[in-house]
Design a binder for these strands. Sequence first.
DNA 1: AACGATCCCTGTTGGC
DNA 2: TGCCAACAGGGATCGT
Length: 276
Amino acid sequence: MPELPEVEITRRHLAVALEGRRIERVVIGHPRTSRLNASPEEVAARLQARSVISLDRHGKLLLGNLDDGQIVLAHLGMSGRFRISPPGSPFDPHTHAVITLDDGAEVRFVDPRTFGFVAVIDGDEVEGSPLSRLGPDAWERPPTVADLQRQLAGRSASIKALLLDQRHIAGLGNIYSDEALFHARVRPTRPAGRLGPVPIGRLLTAIREVLGAAIESGGTTLDDLAYLLPDGQAGDNLPNLAVYGREGLPCPACGTPVSRVVIRARSTHFCRRCQR
DNA sequence: AACGATCCCTGTTGGC
DNA sequence: TGCCAACAGGGATCGT
């Protein structure tokens, strides 16, 4: 599942291919791939002949700044990936968008489960867009302990549920939420409002460490779901995972079998001994 | 308002 | 061996 580290790696690769280039042609081949009330044809038309000035990221959203002030929003969903391909090379199955650049390179969007999307907004339309619903970026602008404690005050929902809520911190998904909670030694089921400044501080530190290590190693490629870097390589972060996907396997810290519960319809992995 | 359930989607997996 | 239900999850939406 692409989360902040995978999107950041994707951004770095795509920035090299896209920044300063002119978009010659865009084809979006799946109706679900264009969003925000725009048809595939409308999105394609708005991108045509525009130049990409820079490529940013906020949480799991990729943000392409165009020369006319428009912003391209791209979300990988749970199975989306971008691939930079030479023209004429065979298409991967589930290729739903192709962006042809003025140097001939093709940026292709592959997304079997179609939870991802590509959309365009005007620079002054940020209000009301998915971008406006995101809290501070978990990597670039993490909240302070005081900020986060204020956000969580009085909340009865579990800390895991609120970590997944992009309005508080943007960028964590199921994998890195579980990993951060493990390293912070906080049980994911704990009501968020009952966490004091000390565990919240440990959580913020753990988020930095977990995201940093994942970015450093090129992101997490699970065996089944093929998140791949835009050059087709796999990420190397899987061995760094302590609890995610490891139900019944020994906790790397104490050897206790890793537990699994379901929170907000998401698998949640933790060590019942290390995380109290 | 806060919170949990449900839905979207399809490749993979496990049970019978 | 073959079939099919269950499972995976980011985020929108809906009911309580």
